[in-house]
Every structure is written in structure tokens, then in C-alpha cells.
Write a protein that binds this DNA or RNA. Structure first.
Lengths: 218, 218, 218, 218
DNA sequence: TATGAATGAGGCTTCATTCAT
DNA sequence: CATGAATGAAGCCTCATTCAT
């Protein structure tokens, strides 16, 4: 087992993800991280070449699997109906973000600031995402599954829904008692998104898969 | 005129809003602010009792007018149809946020971190907002205008849509060439939200006010 | 008097010159300096924009007066005999270096390392010096005062003599009991240089001004 | 062959000499050295008992052969004319320093700082050197070869000439396009020193061995 | 009301070294 | 012999704030 070998590195990463998520990147000090990880401060620079390296790895750890989910679905675009694939991707993204809600919150928040790091690392990921999603909706429209909604607005709308509960986790919990890290929540939230897809995105002649009532019984 | 009197204070505030919006609260130093405002550093403490005071005023400057918009609409809830009032509120919020996009971005981002300040100041605003919105949707359901969608999910969905373009301004501009600070954008974006309301929130026997085509001509 | 105003800055500079001279630039820490100057550490960055700023000011404080001495002499080159002017310059340089022996030692040592700072700041000074000295010896040869010694070697030889006792102050004191900061030493050392000039540089038909015996009585 | 056995040790030494020469002792880190030597960091402590051990070995590697050159000449003092022996020593020192210009520059610079290490290690070497050189000049004066120049000043002058081009290698190259590591330079530089000896040190009735013209053809 | 000097705390990073492997 | 992990100390610098003016 290399568990022991990599443990320090991983302990730092875990602490960093938690603290960046909680207090923000700039609001977290390297000492905070190292002391939470029960590890010497110098190890942060040793393993990650500095605090910024930690953030960069956070981005990677989020976007790499995130894009993989989308890519997996894109590959099947010529074989299956776009709306079904879209729902599959959404389900997987919600599950991923729910299981890595600390990571998700921190990344979704940090990509929001105008820093060189953010721009350099994230822009390539986001451009890739844009490419995939655009392709995806175009295929769906070609297939006659989606109504000709402007793609940019559809994507923006979709991304709003996917990120909001996670970036605003504190709000969700304290104001609405909804727990984004809980499977119960994501299941119901999935249905809520599905309804938006059915009612707004899908052409009216496409069968609506799930009845409204499914998420009503709060 | 108190223009001269208050000018230093206002110059600081403007600089702070811009920099918090751009680099985040913790990523901005008091010296950044004072030098951007062409003002002595000590004035920040003098006028705002420290850096934190600046952030607190930012929250106030955002939430005070924001809640006013909602309150104004709430007062008319017994006289007018809920969906029309909702659209009115959305329109006004979008306009407000568009006109104060720096302030909006910074507030929407900072309420995302778990700090004592944020919690103490914002939670009361957000609880108020929750109260109003809940009341609002309940009335709408009573009126038979809204279908019995779970209110929490409706609010979350609505808030996603209202905040996403502003908190992710950089993404909107660089990836989709959409400019949230531009009236052209908010007008089209308003229609996009309206469609969601019509198709998802409204009972099906309620007349859809705007045809899909309105926002299609991208 | 602005003595009080500038005292902190000057106290730092004095401490820095002493310590750089003693332990070398890299061997001296900012805390060493600030504590020797009885001043808060942060003031170093406040007044000099960092440790490197201190070194840069050291270079300036050395080279500015040093070149002034040479320039003053150069201006008289068309009116007076080159050898007399050369002796005047040497006398003044020795006096200056003797009175600022800490500064001189540190500068003469630090220009010896290959750092970007050193190169950028000093090279312009040294090129100026080269220009003046070359001009100077050319004129002297034209005047028929200097024999046609290769100028580069003459300059190198001269600079050796001018800098050696100061950069090797410790050696001078401990090995030879010669005290470069003492006027008695520089006076005798001046005669020693003069002899080299008379015997080696001057054409043999030029009268030797000082007899050998002058520096013999050690 | 012990080539493999000692290769790590030697690789470290070579890297250290180069880096100390370039960036100074304190300006060089152990990691700089180990990475330039393509060797693990811990080996530095293993082979040299720490960074300081490296410097100490540098001093040894310089002074040991340096003093040997002088000793070799001293042994012949009763058999041959002092001026000829002096020239022999100078020639050999220049050659040695030219062939080990990295080592020479670093040592000549580091003996310039007031550190305990420097003092302890170098002072004995320098005292030995003083002893030899003093003896040497005394014999020369006895022999009636040298004029009664004060010995301390003669030694200082000589040492200036011997060290200056090497400690100021960068200056020599960039300002005067003279290359102290090149045999062409040392040959000409030797003549330049010889002229100083002939004209200044030697009694006038001693024959001047080399005419001025020898180094004129730059 | 406005300023520049000054400060102590804390920021991140690098250092030389040690140690188990 | 050689290695990579790990460490505590120290490096330099920036921070938000205060204070006398």
C-alpha cells in the first residue's frame, strides 16, 4: 500500500479543500491548512510548490472528472436521444458535486474572481465545456428533441441550476433546510431540473417522462 | 452641497466595491483601496471603522434596495395577480443588479463564505427575503396562478437564475460574449426567465404572455 | 530641522551599510538591520521597498560621489597636465573611500557577484567610469605626459590599487596593521600610488615629483 | 579506479565552486548546489558535514596550492636572484588562478567578509603567506636587488595586482573585454606586472628584462 | 478632515539539516 | 551510498490599524 507514502500530501489536500471551501482561498492561511492537516507548514511548499499550487490542484480535481462526465455522454450522442443523455449527465454531475461538495463549492466560488491563476487554468476547461455543451444542444435540436432555444441561454440556465445549491450551501441549509450533500436532496433536485427540461427545452410533442407530483411530497 | 464633504468617503466606497468585486474581499488590501481611491490609508479606518466596515456597508447597499424591490411588490399582492408581480420584481432586480454589477458580484460571492460577519449581517436579510418570497408564492398558489410546485425549490431555482450571470460575469463575457451589465442582455435574459415561469410555474390554464420566438433571434 | 523626520530612514541606512559591509548582503537579514537600527522591521520595506532597495541605495551612495570626483577632474583636462589631475582624483577617491570605508567595502564586494541587481545598476556607473578614464588617459598620452601604456591595463592597475585596501580592510588590519580608514594610511598609500604613476605611467622626461624616501619611514 | 566512488563528492564540489563564485556563499542554497550537481540534497551533509564544510574545502583547495607555489620559490631564495624568483611565483600564481578562476573568485571574495569561519581558516594561511612574502622581500633587499620599498606596501600592491582581475572577472569581461581565464590575458597581464616590478621595485642598476613594447601591441 | 510615520502580527516561502529507508 | 520525506527556524514582506500632527 502506498497509503502511508502519500498520506501527508493527501492530508494537506483534504484540509485545504475544506478550508478553501469554508473561508475562501485568500481567507485561508497556509498555517491554517497545515495545522488542520497535522503536518509541518513547509510541506505545503514541498508538495504543492506553494499555496497557489493547492488551488490549482483543486481546479484540476474538480474539472477533470466533471468534464469526463460530459465527455462520456457526448460520445453517445449519435446513438441515443439528446434529452436522455442530458439527464444522465445532470444526474452524474449532481452526484459528483454532492459527493465532493467542499471541492465544488470552493471551485465554483473561486472561478468567480478575476485572478491570473483562475483565468489561465479554468478558461481552457470552460472552453472545452462550452464546446461540448454547444455540440450537445445542437445535436438535440437536429434530432428534433429540443425546441430552438438559444443555446447560450440554455447553457447558462442549466449551469445556474447545477451550481447554485452547492456554491450557496450555507444558504440552502440555514434558510431552507435543504442539504446539497445529501442524496435525498440531489434526487429531488434532479427531478426539479428534469421538469425544467421537459417543460422548457423539449419540443412539446416529446413525451414528458416524469409527472410533476414526483417532487411535490416535500 | 455636501459633495466635497462626502467625496472621500464615497471615493473609498467606489474603489472598495470595484476591488472586492474583482479580487474578492480577502484578496483586496486596504492599501489597494486607498491608492485606487487616491486617498490616504488612514481614511478607511476613519470613515468605515476598518476594512470589515466596508464589507458591511457593501452588504447594506446591496440588500437594502434589493429587499425594497421585493417589498414594493409584496404590498400589491392582494390587488394584482402574483405572476405579474413576480415578473415586475424580476425585471427590477435584474435592472438593479445590472446597474450595480460590481456590487452585486461581490455580495453574491461573499455571502458564499462561512464567516461570522457574513452570517450575522446577511442572515437577517436573507430570512426577510425568504419570508417575502414564501408569502409571495403561497399567495400565488392561493390565487390559482401557480401550480403547487414546492416553494423552496421554486425560490432556489429563481435565485439561481437571478444571480448566476452576475456572479459569473467573467464567464458570461469571455465564454459566451454575454454582457450582464448591458441592458440588451438583461432584456433578453428577462424573457428567458419569463419563459421558465410560464412553462413551469404557471398553471397551464393561465395565458402565456410571451411567445418563445421573442428571445430566439440571437 | 528635518533631523527627526528622516531619522528612521537614516538609522536603517546606517545599520545596513555597516552590516552589509561586515557580513555581506546575503549574510545580513532584515531583522539584523532593523534591530541594529532600533527600528521596527516593517520600516525597511516602508522606506526602501525591501531589502534590495537598501542595496540599490548603497550603490547609488557610493557611485554618485565617486563619479563626481572623476567628473570634476575631467572638466579640467584641457587646462592642466593629466598626471596632476590624476593625482588629484586619486587623492579625493582615497579620501572618500577612507571616510566611507564601510560603504566602500560593501559596494566593492557586492559588484563582484553576478546578480541582476548588481548588473543593472552598476553597469551604467562602470561604463561611465570607463568612458571618463579612457578619455583621461588618451588626453594624457596626447599631452605627451603618459607613455603609451595600454589604457585598459593602466585602468585595471589603477583600480586594483584604489580598491584593494578597502575591500580587504580586515586583511590590512590584522595582517599588516594598516588601517585604511585612517588618514595616516591614505596619505602614505597615496604616495605609494604616486610612485607607481611616476615610474611606470609617466614618460621618463617628466619630472618625478616625490622622492621614494617619502613613504619609507614606516 | 575510484572515479565512481568519488564522483558524487566531486560533482558536489564542482557545483558548489561554480555557484559560490557566481552568487556568493550566502546567496547559494544547498539545494541549488545539489540540483546543479544532479545529486540528492542529503549528500551535501553526508560528504561535507554541511554547507560550511563546502566553503572550508574551497579555502583549502585554493590556499594549499597557492602557498605551495610560494614555498617552492622560497626554497630557492638563497640560490637565485629574488626578482627572478618573484617573477616565477607571479607567473605560477596567475596561471593557477586563471585555471581555477571560479575557485579563485569565490575565495578572494569570501575572505573579504568578517565571519568566524573565514577568520579561523584563512588567517593561518594568510599569516603564512605574510611570513613568506616578508622573508622574500627582505632577502631581495639584502641581495641588493630590491630598493628599500616598505615591504607591507609592496605586498599590498602585489596582491592587488594578483587578485583584481579574478575577483572582478565580470567587470574585466564586460567593461574591458579582457578574459582572466584566458592564457592570452594572463601572459600579457604578467608583462604588465613585470613592468611594475622593474620600474618600481628593482634597484635602478638592475637590468630591466623586458621592454615596454612587449605588452603595448594590444 | 486628512496625513505620513510607525507598528506588531501574521502572511508565504525557503533554508539547512536530519532521519528512516 | 543514496534517497525523499519531513522539520523547525528563519527569511522577507504585507497586512490592517493607530497615532501624533
Amino acid at each position: 500500500m502506498n497509503k502511508v507514502v502519500s498520506s501527508t500530501r493527501e492530508k494537506i489536500m483534504t484540509a485545504a479543500i475544506y478550508l478553501f471551501n469554508t473561508k475562501g482561498y485568500h481567507g485561508t492561511s497556509v498555517r491554517d491548512i497545515s495545522s488542520r492537516a497535522n503536518v509541518n507548514v513547509a510541506n505545503v511548499s514541498y508538495y504543492f510548490k506553494g499555496k497557489q499550487g493547492l488551488l490549482e490542484e483543486c481546479f484540476t480535481r474538480f474539472f477533470e472528472p466533471y468534464l469526463l462526465i460530459i465527455e462520456k455522454v457526448i460520445k453517445k450522442i449519435d446513438e441515443e436521444r439528446a434529452d436522455r443523455l442530458l439527464l444522465e449527465a445532470i444526474k452524474n454531475i449532481l452526484t459528483f458535486q454532492s459527493q465532493h461538495h467542499h471541492l465544488s463549492r470552493l471551485v465554483l466560488r473561486e472561478i468567480t474572481v478575476d485572478s491570473q491563476v483562475t483565468r489561465e487554468i479554468c478558461s481552457s476547461y470552460l472552453m472545452k465545456e462550452r464546446y461540448y455543451l454547444k455540440l450537445f444542444f445542437e445535436k438535440g435540436i437536429q434530432q428534433g428533441v429540443f425546441s430552438p432555444f438559444p443555446i447560450s441561454f440554455a447553457v447558462v440556465h442549466l449551469k445556474s441550476l447545477l451550481s447554485m445549491p452547492f456554491i450557496n450551501k450555507q444558504y440552502m441549509e440555514e434558510v431552507w433546510n435543504l442539504y446539497p450533500h445529501d442524496k435525498l436532496f440531489t434526487d429531488r433536485y434532479f427531478l426539479s431540473i428534469q421538469m425544467w427540461i421537459n417543460k422548457v427545452l423539449l419540443k412539446s410533442n416529446i413525451v414528458h417522462q416524469e409527472p410533476l407530483s414526483a417532487i411535490v411530497n416535500q
